[in-house]
Nucleic acid binder design. Structure first.
Length: 811
RNA sequence: GCCCGAGUGGUGGAAUGGCAGACACGCGGGACUCAAAAUCCCGUGCCGGUUAACGGCGUGUGGGUUCGACUCCCACCUCGGGCACCA
């Protein structure tokens, strides 16, 4: 025994972790009985794209933080369901496959296998029985089903629209995938504007609900704010302007109070009425300008500080407030995608209009007088002012004139209150190969026919050469035998939709699938869904704040309205974690600063690495990865190990008062910290506790003081805790409802250090018993020599007493 | 330009308006060792002072509120993130 015993005296992470990985597998410790589970807790983390490079430190950081949360909840007695999956469809996978000249269908399984091994090695409490892959026909059958449900409800529509075309990806991108006019995947490639037939999901129908629900969702503020900005709600009015051809033009404005200052009108170059309004002598100039604007890529077009350009159409409209005739121009600073594609220009109170009016010598008429006399009247865009040059409304403060003028225009039937959103409909068509085919068939006689539900999935056909081409048509159009089908409705020759759907559709519902993976005849079982959803806790990165999280909310809301779900928000609690950067920059392969976790885990063990990542800084802030302090965590675990191996069965005695007090304080503090994802401070509290135990326990510490420590360590260092728990004599997993309670009474300090300040400066500290009265505290303070030196000969004018904290004497 | 977040020792960071710098890294000194590593103990914000007692200064900058400000308010600077010709 002695030989074996001494061998096990030192902490060997490699052996401990191997042992528990195996035992967890054998005992199915991490599998959840989704049907039983009396206290369900759905702990969701963002499933990864299984890249060829494997997990990097950023992924591990994200997963471990979520895993710590799930394990903590489990220790508190919840039945935690912690599933994972793989987001394996999409342009990212496809482009990589093209680059290495291998089919994605071959690459993906290998990548997933690698991810699986890495995730197991990290010690995540994942339930692999419920894993999903979006490329599995058993999964994307239901992605297609969701498309059909939205189609039936009129929420999926096909329309010709100006879309973002990436010449590199050779496909259409959603607005959310365009970064500063560049493709999010090819930051060097400018996105072009093309007019194509595309499938859209009408997310804008839900804009108001997507916005107002944010008020009650328990989400990280940063994420919430990003969604608010993205939805971009503006209140204002639609105003109708008459034109000489008789077709009225509607403009949207957030400042109807400035209508008296609208001295001209501007249409977007693509506005449908431009042709009709262009007069003979202006025809040439207008056509030239439109051609020029159309050819321009969206980058140069969208840059805000570019010089304003435009052309007069030759026509005039009538200002509905003044009745005056004002010229109609076209200019590319007016965007067809927002509002009505037409504006009333109020150069006196809009920077862009002023710049334009100055350049083309158009009238500038001030209609708001700023309250602050220091402000220039022309160019004032604020609300703190009063109306002027505005007829009967002169003298009204803006806040009132805006209401009065809107009402007046409404009565004249030339305007009405209007709420405008910046959010656009979601273009889901992709002219690519690696995605779920959109389940639609086109028939010359029957038109657009949805694939019957019973025919799902529309399986993605194998295709050797899946390279996209310039045609703007998906490579699937080259697979004749797949593409040509009989019409489901009339049986005549018809053909399939060849576009596949956006990857973000795959990820917009994956959390609905996890509990129900056993079923192939339904996307999500109603009983299981009611039991597990909405998700209890979702932890992920803010890089998905407006893409994935918005789409997932939209799909959930739509399915709710269609009667498939009884909740409309999927994630009641969402927490954004920070980003791990390296040398101040995001990790990326091109920068060559990607940190691979494997070598750290091999060297230090998963538990040390997990804890180290969590100790790095506040979890919700992230930070720069460096490995300088990792040995500190290992030293800490070694010390904890030594305490466990030397634990005694002895009762707690008087000599353990301080340790016991510290224990109860630690349980209280660590619990509160873990609740708030403050992992770094939770760990420091555990370190303090270990330091106290080491200072007090000469000849072994009673197990009663060590067991709670092991439990508190379990979320962070799960293998380590299991091993310690077993060594302390338990034959069941520590991952039961083992979280210790604390006694407020026992956590209370008996004596405290009272700080004495004179005029706010610390002049003395004295140890006194807790709960000292104000008078007694001040008396004791004045009795101190170090204090007397500063008070002597002066009158104490005021004495502030903060119980059990300080006394401040003002002299 | 607009909207978030952050600026604290040599480093990462900690602090319900109440002892700034917990915890850890690093560094200095010591113990153990033939020696080194590991481990253990002590010290470690800056300046002055004798290595002391003690004193002064100190949380991006400048003001303010307060008995008392890293914390609250105003203005600004820098960095990170998001949005951006959105009418």
């Amino acid at each position: 025994m002695s030989a074996e015993r001494s061998e096990t005296q030192t902490y060997d992470p490699e052996a401990v972790e191997r042992k528990w990985r195996q035992l967890w597998g054998e005992r199915r410790t991490n599998a959840t009985d989704v049907h039983g589970a009396p206290k369900p807790y759905y702990n969701l983390m963002m499933y990864p794209y299984p890249s060829a490079e494997g997990l990097h430190v950023g992924n591990v950081f994200a997963f471990v933080g979520a895993d710590v949360h799930g394990r903590f909840r489990r220790l508190q007695g919840w039945d935690v369901f912690e599933p994972i999956g793989f987001d394996a469809f999409g342009i990212h996978s496809e482009n990589y496959a093209l680059k290495v000249n291998t089919h994605p269908a071959e690459l993906i399984p290998a990548n997933i296998a690698r991810f699986r091994e890495q995730m197991k090695r990290v010690g995540l409490m994942l339930d692999w029985d419920h894993a999903v892959s979006t490329t599995d026909p058993r999964y994307y059958k239901w992605t297609q089903w969701i498309f059909l449900k939205l189609y039936e409800a009129g929420l999926a529509v096909r329309k010709k629209a100006p879309v973002n075309w990436c010449p590199e990806c050779k496909t259409v991108l959603a607005n959310e995938q365009v970064i500063n006019g560049m493709c999010e995947r090819h930051l060097e490639t400018a996105v072009e504007l093309r007019f194509l037939e595309q499938w859209f999901f009408k997310i804008t129908d839900f804009a108001e609900r997507l916005l107002t629900n944010l008020e009650w969702l328990d989400w990280s503020d940063s994420t919430r704010m990003m969604q608010v900005n993205w939805i971009g709600r503006s209140e204002g009015a639609d105003l109708v302007f008459e034109t000489p051809t008789g077709t009225p033009i509607t403009v949207f404005t957030t400042r109807p109070d400035t209508v008296f200052g609208a001295t001209y009108m501007v249409l977007a170059p693509e506005h449908p009425l431009v042709d009709e309004l262009t007069t003979g002598e202006q025809r040439q100039a207008v056509n030239d300008y439109r051609r020029q604007a159309g050819a321009m890529d969206l980058v140069s077009r969208r840059v805000g500080d570019k010089e304003k350009t435009g052309v007069f159409t030759g026509s005039y409209t009538r200002n509905p407030a003044t009745g005056e005739s004002v010229p109609i121009w076209i200019a590319d600073y007016v965007l067809m995608e927002y509002g009505t594609g037409a504006i009333m220009a109020v150069p006196a109170h809009d920077e862009r209009d002023l710049e334009f009016a100055t350049k083309y010598d158009l009238e500038v008429r001030q209609v708001v007088k700023p309250d602050d006399p220091a402000e220039a009247g022309i160019g004032y865009t604020g609300w703190d002012g009063t109306a002027m040059n505005s007829g009967q409304f002169d003298g009204l403060p803006c806040a009132e004139s805006v209401k009065a003028i809107t009402k007046w225009l409404e009565e004249k039937k030339v305007g009405g209150v209007k709420v405008q959103y910046r959010l656009h409909d979601w273009c889901i068509s992709r002219q690519r190969y690696w995605g779920p085919p959109i389940p639609i068939i086109y028939c010359d006689d029957c038109g657009t026919v949805p694939v019957p539900e019973g025919d799902l999935p529309v399986v993605l056909p194998p295709l050797e050469d899946f390279r996209p081409d310039e045609s703007g048509v998906s490579p699937l159009a080259r697979v004749k035998e797949w593409y040509q089908v009989p019409c489901p409705s009339c049986g005549k020759d018809a053909h399939r939709e060849t576009d596949v759907s956006d990857t973000f559709l795959d990820s917009a519902w994956y959390f609905l699938r996890y509990p129900s993976t056993e079923f192939d005849d339904r996307p999500f079982d109603s009983v299981l869904t009611r039991k597990w959803l909405p998700v209890s806790s979702y932890i992920g990165g803010n890089e998905h704040a407006v893409l994935h999280l918005m789409y997932a909310r939209f799909i959930t809301m739509a399915l709710h309205d269609l009667g498939h779900l009884d909740f409309e928000e999927p994630f009641t609690q969402f927490r954004a974690h920070g980003t791990i950067v390296k040398d101040g920059a995001k990790m990326s392969k091109s920068r060559g600063n990607v940190v691979i976790p494997d070598e750290y885990i091999a060297k230090w063990g998963a538990d040390t690495f997990r804890m180290y990542l969590m100790f790095l800084g506040p979890y919700q802030e992230g930070g720069d990865f460096r490995d300088e302090g990792i040995s500190g965590i290992r030293r800490f675990l070694d010390k904890a190990w030594a305490l466990v191996t030397a634990a005694t069965d002895g009762e707690l005695g008087d000599g353990h008062g301080e340790a016991q007090r510290k224990l109860h304080q630690t349980i209280r503090g660590v619990g509160a910290d873990l609740d708030e994802l403050r992992y770094n401070t939770a760990i420091s509290k555990l370190m303090e506790y270990v330091n106290v135990l080491r200072a007090s326990g000469e000849a072994g510490t009673p197990a009663a003081l060590i067991e709670p420590l092991v439990v508190m360590l379990a979320p962070l260092a799960p293998h380590f805790a299991e091993e310690c728990w077993e060594r302390l004599g338990h034959d069941t997993s520590v991952f039961g409802p083992t979280w210790p309670g604390y006694d407020e009474e026992l956590a209370q300090e008996k004596t405290i250090e009272l700080v004495v300040q004179v005029n706010g400066k610390v002049r003395g500290r004295l140890r006194v018993q807790a709960g000292l009265s104000q008078d007694a505290a001040i008396e004791r303070a004045l009795a101190e020599d170090s204090v007397q030196r500063f008070v002597e000969g002066k009158e104490v004018r005021k004495a502030i007493h903060v119980p059990d904290r300080l006394v401040n004497l003002v002299v």
